[in-house]
Structure formats: C-alpha cells, structure tokens
Simulated assay, not measured.
Amino acid sequence: MSRHYDVAAVRKAFPAAEHVVYLDSGFQTPLSRPVKEAYERFLQEGFETAGPKQIWLNRLEETRTKVAAFLGARPNEIAFTKNTSESMNIAANALPLRAGDKVLMIHGDHPNNAYAFLNLRKKGVEIVFIPMTEVVDAESFRPHIDERTRAISMSLVTFHAGHRFDVESVGALCAERSLYFVVDAMQGIGVVPIDAKAMKATFIGSGTHKGLLVPQGLGLLYWDATRTELEPAYLAAASLAEPPLDFVARPDNLALPPTAGRFELGNFNLPAIQGLGAAIDLINQIGIENIQRHCFDLGDYLIERLNGLGVGLVGPRDRQHRAPHIYVIALPAADWLDYFTQNGVRVSPERDGIRVSLGMFNTTADIDRLMEAIRARNAPSARARTAVLSKLG
C-alpha cells in the first residue's frame, strides 16, 4: 500500500504490471487502460466515419490546455512536437545565436540535448560543458559565465543516475544575467511537478512516453511567449499567423502568430494527443505530488534493501538531490541484464549499472521481487566465501 493513494486501484489500469515486475518506466511506461481507450476511440471514429476532423482538432486544443495547466503555463505557450529531441532542436535553433556566442551545458547530460546544441558549432557557436557533480545549481554555472555566454541548457533529471538538478536556481541566474534557459524535462515530467514560470525557462522540451504514459511519437515544447524574438528555423503554412485559405504561398504572408503554434508544422499525431489528454486526467486524478511522494517512499525502501544486501547505488541518495523515481544499482549491466529479464524483472542497462525506474503503479512487492532475484544470484558466491572462511578458520 501507499500512504498517498490507492496504488492497488491504480495498478489495475496497467495490466502489464501484473505479468512482469515492471521497473522500467524511465524507458517506456506500460500502456494504461485510459490511454488505450482514447486510442481505440480515435480508431473507431476513423473506422466508422472516416475521421471527424474538427472534433479531433477540438480535442487537440483541449489537451493543449491540459498540458499548459500541468506545466503552470498558458495554452498559447504549448506546441506539440514529435519527441524530446525535436523539441530541443527547435529550441536550440530558435535562439538568436551567432558566431562567438557561448552556450553552457553539463558534461554527460542526455546526448540528444547536447547534439541539438553541438550542431550549432557549424555556425561558430561555442558549446562549453561544465562538470556533472551530485549537486548542480546556479553556483555550478556562475564561474563559467562571461560576456559571450548567451544560454544554458540542461536536464531537470538525469536519465543515467537520477540526479535532480536545481533548475529553479539556474533559471534565476539566467534571468539575472539575461541568458536564455532551455530545460529537457523528459525524465522528470509526470512524476516531478513542473512550474515553467518558477523555472524561468525560455523553452522546456519533453517527450510523452515515460511519465506522461503515451506511446512513442509525441513531444511537447513550452515557449515563454514574452520572448517574441524567438522564431522557428523552418516554416510551413501551419506555422503562420494567417495560413492562406486558398493554399497559395505568398511572399508577403510570412508573419508568425504570437503563440507556440509558430513552432508547429501541422499534421499532428492526433491519436497520441488524445491519449495524452487521458493520461493527464489520470495523473491529475491521483495528484502529481502524491505520485512523487509515493516514488520517493519506494526509493527509500529500495535503498534500505540494497544496503541490507551490501549492494551499492550510483548517484545521489538525498531526497533533495535525487529524482524520486530513477535509481541505478551498481551491478554491471553486461552481467545482470539478461538474468533479470529471464527472471521476469524489467529494468534497463545504464552507464554504471542497472537502472530501476519507478511508476505510479509500482509497489514494495515489486522491489521485493527485485531483491529476491539479486539475493538468489549472489547466494552461491556468498556460500562459497563462507566455506573458504571456515576452512581458513
């Protein structure tokens, strides 16, 4: 049980969690019943009526409003994209950076955030990586800022060790120094509450297939609508303030709307967007703060059990600096991943071990199954060590 909500009831919405010990939501969350039903509704409507397009577009705007409220933003500040990588590339290329300008990032952060900005080197933009430490905050970046620094880009939560960085202090530093601030929220969104305005972010990019419960192929982009100087690197009729009704492109009609629609190209992933609306309803019904607290509790339990087995944890342990839901066990992935899979435990390999990533549906029983698998494999070696010690004695 959870102290925060009825996990048994929530778990029923995720049938896959009953068939496998699913500790891999940082890769892809299992499909939930509400999201599945939203997809099925879309397919049924398309099958029976060839597509009620305006109804689908109305639902798209309803989901945009839900996303905005979820991020503490306004609907006109939300764009739909393909994934996090596309969102980060849109953001990187929208910043008015020129040769000689400098962007600060964190060494070892997600590569698809880094590559979006490293690609700007062909324009003469310098990308400088600061060290990744257990705590990253404004003071981590401050010594690296000079007169050429124009932007900082970083993750809210790291995928490989579960750091939760102090993005609000970094956002305050960016506001103080008039820097653009770009945040990759993919590994935190849906579990860690996000307030775009408190972050003082220029852009926040994310996909939806982890904490937001939707299959791959849909992303989000928050844009601070006061930054009207930021424009897309590409253009389509859907990006315009006044798309031509006769579908004839005219050189004198290139004005952009005062909304995040300027970063969209049209032909949306409509079934995924409807699924996202259902997913946000589910998250709101439980409460994002409750989900975070539940995952923190499970994380505490996981750490306690690992300590009991003498198995290490990679990354921060303090709640202030760790993500509630991502933990990397110091077991070599090459030696352990297949073993866990064969024993019905779904986890991911990471740089320094095995990643356990929790979801709203996980329970202490899932952690216990994981611990049982570790203990069972370590038991023979433990018995062997005991036998050797007894002979030595």
Rank of each mutant, 00 (worst) to 15 (best):
R11Y: 02
V7S: 12
E264D: 09
V20M: 13
A382Q: 15
G72E: 03
Q28D: 13
F14D: 03
Y39H: 11
P131H: 10
V347Q: 10
Y115R: 12
T81L: 12
L104D: 05
G393R: 12
Q216D: 15
S178P: 09
G308S: 01
R383Q: 13
P257R: 04
R346H: 13
F165I: 07
A116G: 08
N362E: 04
V170D: 11
A279S: 05
F159K: 15
C295L: 03
P271G: 09
A323T: 10
E231Y: 07
D146L: 00
A198I: 02
L212E: 06
T363S: 09
A323W: 01
R377V: 04
K102W: 00
R148V: 00
N307W: 05
V128E: 13
G308I: 00
L313N: 08
E231I: 05
G211V: 10
F296T: 08
A333M: 03
E242D: 15
N89L: 10
E37L: 03
I286N: 07
R317S: 12
Y22H: 03
A260S: 07
A237C: 09
V35F: 04
G344R: 11
I127F: 09
Y115D: 13
I78V: 12
P349Q: 08
G359K: 02
V67P: 06
L309K: 00
S357I: 03
G190I: 01
K200Y: 06
L313E: 12
E37A: 13
T158M: 12
H19F: 07
A225V: 05
A69Y: 04
I127L: 12
L309E: 14
R355W: 11
V345P: 13
S32G: 03
H110C: 08
P380S: 07
H321G: 06
A116R: 07
F181A: 09
N284P: 02
S169L: 05
H160F: 09
G344Q: 11
V388K: 08
L221R: 13
R148F: 08
V10P: 07
R148C: 07
P193W: 06
G308A: 11
P34V: 00
A198Y: 14
F47W: 14
R150Q: 10
A249S: 11
A236Q: 13
L23K: 03
Y234N: 14
F70P: 02
R64P: 08
E48T: 06
A198T: 09
A382N: 10
Y5D: 09
I288E: 15
F165H: 15
